[in-house]
Design a protein around this nucleic acid. Structure first.
Length: 103
DNA sequence: CTATTGACGACAT
DNA sequence: CATGTCGCCAATA
């Protein structure tokens, strides 16, 4: 029995709109879901994402351009992003403002 | 209902 | 620029 909250549904829905090779932040995603200050809650929601393979939750990063967390470890997140064309240098996303997706 | 938690954010030091 | 502190919010216990 699936217990995905409405909040999570909104998050996942927005998540699918992030293009390959771009990223968004927890805060922006929270705002896009109508919960402006719930950046933390967004992170918690993504953590419980049951369908990791089909949910590009690796495209959600911190507002300061660092990677943030990931269920499979931030190094894995780094590798995936890199594969999608997002260059990360020393834990920081390059051209951050440029590839940032704001819905 | 209250307390704790955590893949965060803004600001101070 | 790196760390620390405090505020924030939905989900859970």
């Amino acid at each position: 029995m699936n217990k995905i909250s409405q909040f999570n549904k909104q998050v996942f829905r927005k998540l699918d709109k992030i293009p390959r090779g771009r990223v968004t932040t927890y805060k922006i995603l929270a705002q896009a879901c109508g919960h402006g200050g719930a950046a933390r809650a967004v992170g918690n929601a993504l953590k419980r994402n049951p369908d990791l393979f089909f949910r590009p939750c690796h495209r959600v990063v911190k507002s300061d351009g660092s990677l943030g967390g990931y269920v499979q470890g931030r190094n894995k997140k780094f590798l995936i992003l890199r594969r999608e064309g997002v260059s990360v240098k020393d834990g920081r996303i390059q051209n951050f403002k440029k590839i940032l997706y704001k819905f």
